[in-house]
């Protein structure tokens, strides 16, 4: 055990791991404790970025870049759009019942205790080192198009269905509550006769 700890301390990889892990945990805790919604999204983007760094440490380069693109880019922006399209009053106005929040804290603490004890109690077998990082993207692409091609194609169908469903869901009220559309159109319809009138006035002048 002591030589393990020495190995832990001396390794440069573990130093990078600890810095990135501290960034991730601090970002997550800030996400919980901030009061403004946009600040929460930005601190969660910090978590996503540091997790991408951790993926780089784990020799998963392609997944790290996908993480930056999809999570830190797309999902954060999507959530910011979601925030901007809805109105948020003060986030934490202590309306949340103290008892419920305390119960959630205790439940999550218990969950973490169980997970931690399970992780500590397991004897992990040392694997033989495999070079996962060399030609990472090439090998992932080969795996995707040979062994996992059916889930890959199903995933494309799922993405298409989900995005069409998202568009329909976000649009449906627009068609249904069509009272908003004529309201916008009626001023145009009213203003439309105004234009010939002005022209007529100009012609008269």
């Amino acid at each position: 055990m002591p030589d393990l700890d020495l190995d832990l301390i001396l390794n440069g990889q573990t130093i990078a791991y600890f810095m990135l892990a501290i960034c991730a945990i601090v970002g997550a805790i800030l996400m919980i404790s901030f009061t403004k919604v946009v600040h929460m999204v930005v601190s969660l983007a910090l978590v996503f970025l540091s997790l991408a760094g951790i993926y780089l440490l784990l020799e998963a380069e392609f997944v790290a870049f996908v993480q930056v693109l999809v999570y830190a880019g797309a999902i954060s922006i999507l959530m910011i759009f979601g925030i901007m399209m809805t109105r948020h009053d003060r986030q934490e106005e202590h309306m949340v019942k103290r008892a419920r929040s305390f119960a959630a804290l205790i439940g999550c603490g218990a969950l973490f205790a169980v997970l931690f004890l399970a992780i500590r109690g397991t004897a992990f077998i040392d694997p033989e080192a495999q070079p996962l990082a060399e030609n990472n993207t090439l090998r992932i692409g080969e795996l995707l198009f040979t062994e996992h091609v059916i889930p890959f194609e199903l995933l494309s169908v799922l993405l298409t269905v989900a995005f069409i469903g998202a568009i329909v869901l976000a649009k449906s009220d627009h068609e249904e509550g069509s009272s908003s559309l004529p309201k916008e159109e009626t001023p145009v319809a009213k203003s439309a006769p105004l234009v010939p009138d002005r022209k007529g006035e100009e012609e008269f002048q």
């Binding site: 991730a24 945990i25 997550a28 805790i29 996400m31 919980i32 978590v47 997790l51 949340v96 419920r100 929040s101 959630a104 804290l105 439940g107 999550c108 603490g109 969950l111 973490f112 997970l115 931690f116 992780i119």
Partner: peptide, 13 residues
Amino acid sequence: AILFTIGCYGVLT
């Protein structure tokens, strides 16, 4: 596990 627990707490509260 820490990140999962924090996320779980956020979902609940």
